[in-house]
Design a protein around this nucleic acid. Sequence first.
DNA 1: TCGCTAAGTCAGCATTTGTTTACATCAACG
DNA 2: CGTTGATGTAAACAAATGCTGACTTAGCGA
Lengths: 214, 214
Amino acid sequence: MTSEPTIDASTDVPPPVRGRDADLTRALLLEAARRRFARDGYGSTTVRDIAADAGVNVALINRYFGSKEGLFEACISRVAEAFARPAEPGTTVERVLQRMIDSASGASNGEQAQMLLLLLRSSGDEHADGIRRSTLEGFARRLAEASGSGPDAVDDHRFLLRAQIAMATALGLVILRSSTGLEPLTSASEEDLAGPLREVLTVLLEPGATGRDR
Amino acid sequence: MTSEPTIDASTDVPPPVRGRDADLTRALLLEAARRRFARDGYGSTTVRDIAADAGVNVALINRYFGSKEGLFEACISRVAEAFARPAEPGTTVERVLQRMIDSASGASNGEQAQMLLLLLRSSGDEHADGIRRSTLEGFARRLAEASGSGPDAVDDHRFLLRAQIAMATALGLVILRSSTGLEPLTSASEEDLAGPLREVLTVLLEPGATGRDR
DNA sequence: TCGCTAAGTCAGCATTTGTTTACATCAACG
DNA sequence: CGTTGATGTAAACAAATGCTGACTTAGCGA
Protein backbone atom coordinates (compact mmCIF):
# COMPACT_ATOMS: atom_id res chain seq x y z
CA MET A 1 0.00 0.00 0.00
CA THR A 2 2.76 2.43 -0.73
CA SER A 3 1.41 5.76 -1.74
CA GLU A 4 1.82 6.05 -5.45
CA PRO A 5 1.67 9.58 -6.80
CA THR A 6 1.23 8.41 -10.39
CA ILE A 7 1.76 11.51 -12.40
CA ASP A 8 -1.09 11.92 -14.82
CA ALA A 9 -0.46 15.30 -16.31
CA SER A 10 -2.95 14.67 -19.07
CA THR A 11 -5.95 15.55 -16.98
CA ASP A 12 -6.21 19.27 -16.59
CA VAL A 13 -8.01 19.78 -13.33
CA PRO A 14 -6.61 17.32 -10.74
CA PRO A 15 -3.26 18.51 -9.46
CA PRO A 16 -0.85 15.84 -8.22
CA VAL A 17 -2.36 15.82 -4.79
CA ARG A 18 0.37 14.54 -2.59
CA GLY A 19 1.05 15.59 0.95
CA ARG A 20 -1.80 16.60 3.15
CA ASP A 21 -4.58 14.09 3.02
CA ALA A 22 -6.35 13.24 6.25
CA ASP A 23 -8.09 10.21 4.76
CA LEU A 24 -4.85 8.78 3.48
CA THR A 25 -3.19 9.41 6.83
CA ARG A 26 -6.00 7.63 8.60
CA ALA A 27 -5.71 4.71 6.22
CA LEU A 28 -1.95 4.49 6.67
CA LEU A 29 -2.33 4.52 10.43
CA LEU A 30 -5.02 1.87 10.34
CA GLU A 31 -2.95 -0.45 8.21
CA ALA A 32 0.19 -0.03 10.27
CA ALA A 33 -1.78 -0.50 13.46
CA ARG A 34 -3.52 -3.60 12.19
CA ARG A 35 -0.21 -5.17 11.30
CA ARG A 36 1.45 -4.29 14.60
CA PHE A 37 -1.49 -5.20 16.80
CA ALA A 38 -1.93 -8.50 14.99
CA ARG A 39 1.74 -9.42 15.20
CA ASP A 40 2.80 -8.08 18.59
CA GLY A 41 -0.44 -7.68 20.48
CA TYR A 42 -1.86 -4.54 22.01
CA GLY A 43 0.39 -4.17 25.02
CA SER A 44 3.62 -4.73 23.15
CA THR A 45 2.79 -2.20 20.49
CA THR A 46 3.60 1.46 21.03
CA VAL A 47 1.99 4.35 19.28
CA ARG A 48 5.41 5.49 18.20
CA ASP A 49 5.95 2.16 16.47
CA ILE A 50 2.71 2.53 14.58
CA ALA A 51 3.36 6.12 13.63
CA ALA A 52 6.86 5.26 12.40
CA ASP A 53 5.53 2.37 10.31
CA ALA A 54 2.92 4.61 8.79
CA GLY A 55 5.43 7.40 8.23
CA VAL A 56 3.22 9.76 10.13
CA ASN A 57 3.54 11.97 13.17
CA VAL A 58 2.63 10.34 16.48
CA ALA A 59 0.26 13.07 17.54
CA LEU A 60 -1.99 12.32 14.60
CA ILE A 61 -3.03 9.06 16.19
CA ASN A 62 -4.66 11.01 18.98
CA ARG A 63 -6.01 13.56 16.59
CA TYR A 64 -7.74 11.06 14.34
CA PHE A 65 -8.55 8.23 16.71
CA GLY A 66 -8.62 9.89 20.10
CA SER A 67 -6.33 7.42 21.75
CA LYS A 68 -4.38 4.22 21.26
CA GLU A 69 -7.44 2.27 22.29
CA GLY A 70 -9.52 4.23 19.83
CA LEU A 71 -7.17 3.19 17.08
CA PHE A 72 -7.33 -0.43 18.20
CA GLU A 73 -11.09 -0.31 18.26
CA ALA A 74 -11.12 1.14 14.77
CA CYS A 75 -9.01 -1.80 13.61
CA ILE A 76 -11.33 -4.28 15.28
CA SER A 77 -14.37 -2.61 13.78
CA ARG A 78 -12.87 -2.87 10.33
CA VAL A 79 -12.23 -6.55 10.78
CA ALA A 80 -15.70 -7.07 12.16
CA GLU A 81 -17.14 -5.29 9.15
CA ALA A 82 -15.13 -7.46 6.77
CA PHE A 83 -16.30 -10.59 8.52
CA ALA A 84 -19.92 -9.58 8.72
CA ARG A 85 -20.26 -8.77 5.05
CA PRO A 86 -20.86 -12.02 3.17
CA ALA A 87 -23.72 -13.30 5.28
CA GLU A 88 -25.88 -14.22 2.34
CA PRO A 89 -28.28 -17.10 2.90
CA GLY A 90 -27.11 -18.76 -0.28
CA THR A 91 -23.80 -19.76 1.22
CA THR A 92 -23.24 -23.47 1.13
CA VAL A 93 -20.95 -25.42 3.39
CA GLU A 94 -18.50 -25.86 0.59
CA ARG A 95 -18.23 -22.09 0.07
CA VAL A 96 -17.54 -21.24 3.67
CA LEU A 97 -15.27 -24.22 3.98
CA GLN A 98 -13.19 -23.14 1.04
CA ARG A 99 -13.00 -19.64 2.42
CA MET A 100 -11.72 -20.89 5.74
CA ILE A 101 -9.15 -23.06 4.02
CA ASP A 102 -7.95 -20.12 2.02
CA SER A 103 -7.73 -17.89 5.06
CA ALA A 104 -5.90 -20.39 7.20
CA SER A 105 -3.55 -21.78 4.62
CA GLY A 106 -2.71 -18.57 2.82
CA ALA A 107 0.31 -16.43 3.53
CA SER A 108 0.86 -16.47 7.25
CA ASN A 109 1.26 -12.70 7.25
CA GLY A 110 -1.38 -11.96 4.67
CA GLU A 111 -4.30 -9.70 5.26
CA GLN A 112 -6.65 -12.57 6.03
CA ALA A 113 -4.31 -13.97 8.64
CA GLN A 114 -3.83 -10.53 10.13
CA MET A 115 -7.54 -10.06 10.57
CA LEU A 116 -7.93 -13.43 12.22
CA LEU A 117 -5.07 -12.69 14.57
CA LEU A 118 -6.57 -9.34 15.44
CA LEU A 119 -9.72 -11.09 16.58
CA LEU A 120 -7.67 -12.81 19.25
CA ARG A 121 -5.94 -9.71 20.55
CA SER A 122 -7.41 -7.82 23.43
CA SER A 123 -6.72 -4.35 24.71
CA GLY A 124 -8.68 -4.94 27.87
CA ASP A 125 -11.30 -2.51 26.68
CA GLU A 126 -14.77 -3.94 27.11
CA HIS A 127 -16.23 -2.37 24.03
CA ALA A 128 -13.56 -3.71 21.72
CA ASP A 129 -13.81 -7.09 23.37
CA GLY A 130 -17.54 -7.07 22.80
CA ILE A 131 -17.13 -6.40 19.09
CA ARG A 132 -14.53 -9.11 18.96
CA ARG A 133 -16.74 -11.71 20.59
CA SER A 134 -19.86 -10.87 18.67
CA THR A 135 -17.90 -11.05 15.43
CA LEU A 136 -16.61 -14.49 16.27
CA GLU A 137 -20.01 -15.67 17.45
CA GLY A 138 -21.67 -14.31 14.36
CA PHE A 139 -19.27 -16.09 12.10
CA ALA A 140 -19.71 -19.33 14.02
CA ARG A 141 -23.47 -19.01 13.85
CA ARG A 142 -23.44 -18.54 10.08
CA LEU A 143 -21.08 -21.45 9.82
CA ALA A 144 -23.42 -23.62 11.84
CA GLU A 145 -26.42 -22.52 9.80
CA ALA A 146 -24.64 -23.25 6.56
CA SER A 147 -23.67 -26.67 7.86
CA GLY A 148 -27.30 -27.58 8.10
CA SER A 149 -28.28 -26.63 11.58
CA GLY A 150 -31.95 -27.33 11.72
CA PRO A 151 -34.76 -25.98 13.87
CA ASP A 152 -34.03 -28.55 16.52
CA ALA A 153 -32.55 -26.65 19.45
CA VAL A 154 -30.35 -29.45 20.70
CA ASP A 155 -28.88 -30.14 17.35
CA ASP A 156 -28.53 -26.41 16.90
CA HIS A 157 -26.40 -26.26 19.95
CA ARG A 158 -24.29 -29.17 18.82
CA PHE A 159 -23.79 -27.66 15.38
CA LEU A 160 -22.80 -24.36 16.89
CA LEU A 161 -20.25 -26.01 19.10
CA ARG A 162 -18.82 -27.88 16.16
CA ALA A 163 -18.65 -24.73 14.11
CA GLN A 164 -16.73 -23.02 16.86
CA ILE A 165 -14.31 -25.91 17.06
CA ALA A 166 -13.82 -25.55 13.34
CA MET A 167 -13.02 -21.90 13.87
CA ALA A 168 -10.58 -22.88 16.58
CA THR A 169 -8.74 -25.07 14.13
CA ALA A 170 -8.41 -22.30 11.58
CA LEU A 171 -7.39 -19.78 14.20
CA GLY A 172 -4.91 -22.13 15.82
CA LEU A 173 -3.38 -22.78 12.45
CA VAL A 174 -2.93 -19.11 11.70
CA ILE A 175 -1.45 -18.45 15.11
CA LEU A 176 0.95 -21.34 14.97
CA ARG A 177 2.11 -20.30 11.53
CA SER A 178 2.55 -16.62 12.24
CA SER A 179 3.38 -16.33 15.90
CA THR A 180 5.74 -19.26 16.21
CA GLY A 181 7.88 -20.25 13.27
CA LEU A 182 6.79 -23.85 13.62
CA GLU A 183 8.07 -26.02 10.81
CA PRO A 184 7.06 -27.56 8.50
CA LEU A 185 3.73 -25.92 9.19
CA THR A 186 4.83 -22.37 8.52
CA SER A 187 6.46 -23.14 5.20
CA ALA A 188 3.77 -25.55 4.10
CA SER A 189 2.17 -24.71 0.79
CA GLU A 190 -1.51 -24.07 0.41
CA GLU A 191 -1.95 -27.46 -1.25
CA ASP A 192 -0.17 -29.22 1.57
CA LEU A 193 -2.56 -27.73 4.07
CA ALA A 194 -5.76 -27.80 2.07
CA GLY A 195 -6.11 -31.57 2.19
CA PRO A 196 -5.88 -32.21 5.92
CA LEU A 197 -7.76 -29.02 6.67
CA ARG A 198 -10.60 -30.03 4.44
CA GLU A 199 -10.80 -33.39 6.16
CA VAL A 200 -10.98 -31.77 9.58
CA LEU A 201 -13.52 -29.16 8.67
CA THR A 202 -15.62 -31.68 6.82
CA VAL A 203 -15.73 -33.97 9.81
CA LEU A 204 -16.82 -31.06 11.95
CA LEU A 205 -19.29 -29.43 9.64
CA GLU A 206 -20.72 -32.02 7.29
CA PRO A 207 -23.96 -33.14 8.92
CA GLY A 208 -23.56 -36.83 8.30
CA ALA A 209 -19.80 -37.07 8.43
CA THR A 210 -18.35 -39.99 10.38
CA GLY A 211 -20.29 -41.89 12.95
CA ARG A 212 -21.50 -39.70 15.71
CA ASP A 213 -20.64 -42.46 18.16
CA ARG A 214 -21.67 -42.73 21.80
CA MET B 1 -4.38 -3.92 40.89
CA THR B 2 -7.16 -5.64 42.78
CA SER B 3 -8.11 -7.35 45.97
CA GLU B 4 -5.23 -6.72 48.24
CA PRO B 5 -5.54 -7.57 51.90
CA THR B 6 -5.43 -3.87 52.76
CA ILE B 7 -5.32 -3.05 56.41
CA ASP B 8 -6.56 -5.64 58.82
CA ALA B 9 -5.21 -4.22 62.03
CA SER B 10 -8.03 -5.67 64.10
CA THR B 11 -7.16 -9.30 63.57
CA ASP B 12 -4.47 -10.49 65.89
CA VAL B 13 -2.57 -13.28 64.22
CA PRO B 14 -3.60 -13.69 60.59
CA PRO B 15 -1.06 -11.58 58.78
CA PRO B 16 0.18 -14.34 56.53
CA VAL B 17 3.59 -14.15 58.07
CA ARG B 18 5.34 -16.28 55.58
CA GLY B 19 8.79 -16.89 56.88
CA ARG B 20 11.74 -16.09 54.75
CA ASP B 21 11.94 -18.76 52.14
CA ALA B 22 13.64 -17.99 48.87
CA ASP B 23 12.42 -21.16 47.19
CA LEU B 24 8.84 -20.45 48.12
CA THR B 25 9.18 -16.88 46.94
CA ARG B 26 10.55 -18.06 43.63
CA ALA B 27 7.68 -20.51 43.29
CA LEU B 28 5.09 -17.87 44.09
CA LEU B 29 6.59 -15.52 41.55
CA LEU B 30 6.72 -18.21 38.89
CA GLU B 31 3.10 -19.14 39.41
CA ALA B 32 1.87 -15.57 39.38
CA ALA B 33 3.97 -14.80 36.34
CA ARG B 34 2.76 -17.84 34.46
CA ARG B 35 -0.83 -16.87 35.06
CA ARG B 36 -0.33 -13.25 34.07
CA PHE B 37 1.80 -13.94 31.04
CA ALA B 38 -0.60 -16.61 29.82
CA ARG B 39 -3.66 -14.42 30.27
CA ASP B 40 -2.44 -10.96 29.33
CA GLY B 41 0.69 -11.61 27.30
CA TYR B 42 4.18 -10.38 27.97
CA GLY B 43 3.83 -6.75 27.03
CA SER B 44 0.63 -6.15 28.93
CA THR B 45 1.98 -7.64 32.13
CA THR B 46 3.95 -5.47 34.52
CA VAL B 47 6.39 -6.72 37.10
CA ARG B 48 4.41 -4.87 39.74
CA ASP B 49 1.32 -6.86 38.79
CA ILE B 50 3.17 -10.11 39.18
CA ALA B 51 4.73 -9.12 42.47
CA ALA B 52 1.38 -8.02 43.85
CA ASP B 53 -0.26 -11.29 42.80
CA ALA B 54 2.50 -13.24 44.44
CA GLY B 55 2.41 -11.06 47.54
CA VAL B 56 6.07 -10.36 47.15
CA ASN B 57 8.25 -7.30 46.80
CA VAL B 58 8.91 -6.18 43.26
CA ALA B 59 12.65 -6.03 43.64
CA LEU B 60 12.77 -9.75 44.27
CA ILE B 61 11.89 -10.43 40.67
CA ASN B 62 15.17 -8.88 39.63
CA ARG B 63 17.00 -10.53 42.48
CA TYR B 64 15.85 -14.04 41.65
CA PHE B 65 15.34 -13.90 37.91
CA GLY B 66 17.55 -11.06 36.80
CA SER B 67 14.89 -9.28 34.82
CA LYS B 68 11.31 -9.47 33.61
CA GLU B 69 12.52 -11.41 30.60
CA GLY B 70 14.43 -13.75 32.85
CA LEU B 71 11.23 -14.49 34.71
CA PHE B 72 9.39 -15.07 31.47
CA GLU B 73 12.10 -17.39 30.26
CA ALA B 74 11.92 -19.30 33.51
CA CYS B 75 8.18 -19.77 32.96
CA ILE B 76 8.76 -20.96 29.42
CA SER B 77 11.44 -23.36 30.55
CA ARG B 78 9.13 -24.86 33.12
CA VAL B 79 6.45 -25.41 30.52
CA ALA B 80 8.98 -26.87 28.13
CA GLU B 81 10.14 -29.24 30.84
CA ALA B 82 6.60 -30.31 31.59
CA PHE B 83 5.96 -30.97 27.93
CA ALA B 84 9.18 -32.82 27.33
CA ARG B 85 8.73 -35.22 30.21
CA PRO B 86 6.39 -37.99 29.07
CA ALA B 87 8.26 -38.87 25.90
CA GLU B 88 8.20 -42.58 26.56
CA PRO B 89 8.35 -44.81 23.52
CA GLY B 90 5.38 -46.80 24.76
CA THR B 91 2.96 -43.98 24.11
CA THR B 92 0.18 -44.97 21.84
CA VAL B 93 -1.94 -42.67 19.74
CA GLU B 94 -4.82 -43.15 22.06
CA ARG B 95 -2.78 -42.00 25.04
CA VAL B 96 -1.55 -38.80 23.49
CA LEU B 97 -4.93 -38.18 21.98
CA GLN B 98 -6.63 -38.49 25.33
CA ARG B 99 -4.10 -36.17 26.85
CA MET B 100 -4.71 -33.53 24.23
CA ILE B 101 -8.43 -33.82 24.71
CA ASP B 102 -8.03 -33.39 28.44
CA SER B 103 -5.79 -30.38 28.03
CA ALA B 104 -7.96 -28.64 25.51
CA SER B 105 -11.33 -29.37 27.04
CA GLY B 106 -10.42 -28.90 30.68
CA ALA B 107 -10.92 -25.74 32.64
CA SER B 108 -10.15 -22.85 30.34
CA ASN B 109 -7.99 -21.29 33.02
CA GLY B 110 -6.52 -24.48 34.38
CA GLU B 111 -2.86 -25.19 34.58
CA GLN B 112 -2.82 -27.16 31.35
CA ALA B 113 -4.50 -24.36 29.46
CA GLN B 114 -2.14 -21.84 30.97
CA MET B 115 0.87 -23.74 29.79
CA LEU B 116 -0.47 -24.04 26.31
CA LEU B 117 -1.23 -20.35 26.21
CA LEU B 118 2.24 -19.56 27.43
CA LEU B 119 3.67 -21.40 24.46
CA LEU B 120 2.00 -18.86 22.22
CA ARG B 121 3.22 -15.79 24.03
CA SER B 122 6.41 -14.11 22.99
CA SER B 123 8.56 -11.59 24.73
CA GLY B 124 10.57 -10.90 21.64
CA ASP B 125 13.56 -12.54 23.22
CA GLU B 126 15.20 -14.95 20.82
CA HIS B 127 16.23 -17.46 23.42
CA ALA B 128 12.77 -17.80 24.89
CA ASP B 129 11.31 -18.02 21.42
CA GLY B 130 13.73 -20.80 20.59
CA ILE B 131 12.67 -22.82 23.60
CA ARG B 132 9.08 -22.20 22.69
CA ARG B 133 9.48 -23.41 19.13
CA SER B 134 11.56 -26.44 19.96
CA THR B 135 9.03 -27.43 22.59
CA LEU B 136 6.20 -27.25 20.11
CA GLU B 137 8.19 -29.04 17.43
CA GLY B 138 9.23 -31.74 19.86
CA PHE B 139 5.67 -32.36 20.90
CA ALA B 140 4.52 -32.48 17.29
CA ARG B 141 7.29 -34.90 16.42
CA ARG B 142 6.36 -37.26 19.21
CA LEU B 143 2.76 -36.96 18.17
CA ALA B 144 3.65 -37.87 14.61
CA GLU B 145 5.78 -40.78 15.71
CA ALA B 146 3.04 -42.11 17.93
CA SER B 147 0.59 -41.81 15.09
CA GLY B 148 2.60 -44.30 13.14
CA SER B 149 4.98 -42.22 11.15
CA GLY B 150 7.15 -44.78 9.43
CA PRO B 151 10.64 -44.65 8.02
CA ASP B 152 9.35 -43.25 4.79
CA ALA B 153 10.49 -39.66 4.63
CA VAL B 154 7.61 -38.38 2.59
CA ASP B 155 5.05 -39.96 4.82
CA ASP B 156 7.03 -38.68 7.76
CA HIS B 157 6.61 -35.18 6.52
CA ARG B 158 2.92 -35.64 5.98
CA PHE B 159 2.45 -37.12 9.42
CA LEU B 160 4.36 -34.29 10.99
CA LEU B 161 2.24 -31.73 9.23
CA ARG B 162 -0.90 -33.47 10.37
CA ALA B 163 0.35 -33.63 13.93
CA GLN B 164 1.00 -29.92 13.89
CA ILE B 165 -2.47 -29.26 12.56
CA ALA B 166 -3.80 -31.34 15.42
CA MET B 167 -1.84 -29.18 17.81
CA ALA B 168 -3.29 -26.12 16.14
CA THR B 169 -6.77 -27.38 16.87
CA ALA B 170 -6.04 -27.92 20.53
CA LEU B 171 -4.30 -24.59 20.86
CA GLY B 172 -7.00 -22.73 18.99
CA LEU B 173 -9.58 -24.28 21.25
CA VAL B 174 -7.78 -23.20 24.40
CA ILE B 175 -7.27 -19.70 23.09
CA LEU B 176 -10.84 -19.29 21.99
CA ARG B 177 -12.10 -20.51 25.34
CA SER B 178 -9.82 -18.45 27.51
CA SER B 179 -9.01 -15.32 25.58
CA THR B 180 -12.45 -14.64 24.13
CA GLY B 181 -15.51 -15.59 26.09
CA LEU B 182 -16.96 -17.31 23.03
CA GLU B 183 -20.14 -19.18 23.82
CA PRO B 184 -21.18 -21.95 23.98
CA LEU B 185 -17.60 -23.05 23.56
CA THR B 186 -16.30 -21.54 26.78
CA SER B 187 -18.98 -23.03 28.96
CA ALA B 188 -19.02 -26.34 27.17
CA SER B 189 -18.44 -29.33 29.38
CA GLU B 190 -15.60 -31.71 28.89
CA GLU B 191 -17.98 -34.34 27.53
CA ASP B 192 -19.43 -31.89 25.05
CA LEU B 193 -16.01 -31.20 23.65
CA ALA B 194 -14.47 -34.65 23.88
CA GLY B 195 -16.63 -36.11 21.12
CA PRO B 196 -15.98 -33.66 18.31
CA LEU B 197 -12.38 -33.22 19.40
CA ARG B 198 -11.78 -36.93 19.26
CA GLU B 199 -13.26 -37.07 15.78
CA VAL B 200 -10.99 -34.29 14.56
CA LEU B 201 -7.82 -35.61 16.12
CA THR B 202 -8.57 -39.12 14.95
CA VAL B 203 -8.99 -37.97 11.38
CA LEU B 204 -5.68 -36.19 11.60
CA LEU B 205 -3.66 -38.75 13.46
CA GLU B 206 -5.07 -42.19 12.77
CA PRO B 207 -2.88 -43.67 10.03
CA GLY B 208 -5.65 -44.96 7.85
CA ALA B 209 -8.09 -42.19 8.46
CA THR B 210 -7.44 -40.18 5.34
CA GLY B 211 -10.05 -41.94 3.29
CA ARG B 212 -12.44 -41.86 6.18
CA ASP B 213 -14.69 -39.09 4.95
CA ARG B 214 -17.62 -40.87 3.43
C1' DT C 1 24.16 -13.02 73.17
C1' DC C 2 26.54 -11.62 69.19
C1' DG C 3 27.37 -11.36 64.61
C1' DC C 4 26.90 -12.78 60.03
C1' DT C 5 24.50 -13.78 55.87
C1' DA C 6 20.55 -14.47 53.19
C1' DA C 7 15.96 -12.55 52.50
C1' DG C 8 13.21 -8.76 52.14
C1' DT C 9 12.00 -3.60 51.97
C1' DC C 10 12.15 1.05 50.42
C1' DA C 11 12.92 5.03 47.71
C1' DG C 12 14.36 6.63 43.73
C1' DC C 13 16.63 6.48 39.05
C1' DA C 14 16.35 6.55 34.04
C1' DT C 15 13.63 5.47 30.40
C1' DT C 16 9.46 4.55 27.95
C1' DT C 17 4.84 5.67 26.69
C1' DG C 18 0.41 7.87 25.90
C1' DT C 19 -1.12 12.25 25.47
C1' DT C 20 -1.42 17.29 25.11
C1' DT C 21 -0.22 21.81 23.88
C1' DA C 22 1.61 25.32 21.17
C1' DC C 23 3.39 26.31 16.84
C1' DA C 24 4.24 25.79 11.69
C1' DT C 25 2.63 24.96 7.01
C1' DC C 26 -0.29 24.22 3.25
C1' DA C 27 -4.44 24.96 0.34
C1' DA C 28 -8.51 27.31 -0.67
C1' DC C 29 -10.93 31.66 -1.07
C1' DG C 30 -12.42 36.69 -0.55
C1' DC D 1 -2.34 40.03 -1.10
C1' DG D 2 -4.30 38.36 3.84
C1' DT D 3 -7.34 35.26 6.29
C1' DT D 4 -8.88 30.98 7.70
C1' DG D 5 -9.42 26.33 8.62
C1' DA D 6 -7.48 21.99 8.10
C1' DT D 7 -3.28 19.31 8.39
C1' DG D 8 1.17 18.26 10.12
C1' DT D 9 5.32 18.98 13.41
C1' DA D 10 7.92 19.41 17.49
C1' DA D 11 8.48 19.63 22.26
C1' DA D 12 7.21 18.52 26.54
C1' DC D 13 4.58 16.58 30.41
C1' DA D 14 2.75 13.19 33.65
C1' DA D 15 2.28 8.70 34.55
C1' DA D 16 3.90 4.08 34.19
C1' DT D 17 7.57 0.79 34.06
C1' DG D 18 11.82 -1.88 34.62
C1' DC D 19 15.46 -1.80 37.38
C1' DT D 20 19.10 -0.59 41.04
C1' DG D 21 21.42 0.36 45.33
C1' DA D 22 21.33 1.28 50.09
C1' DC D 23 19.18 -0.16 53.94
C1' DT D 24 16.58 -3.27 57.36
C1' DT D 25 15.37 -7.54 59.31
C1' DA D 26 14.84 -12.33 60.22
C1' DG D 27 17.03 -16.69 60.96
C1' DC D 28 20.78 -19.26 62.79
C1' DG D 29 25.14 -21.02 64.24
C1' DA D 30 29.11 -19.97 67.29
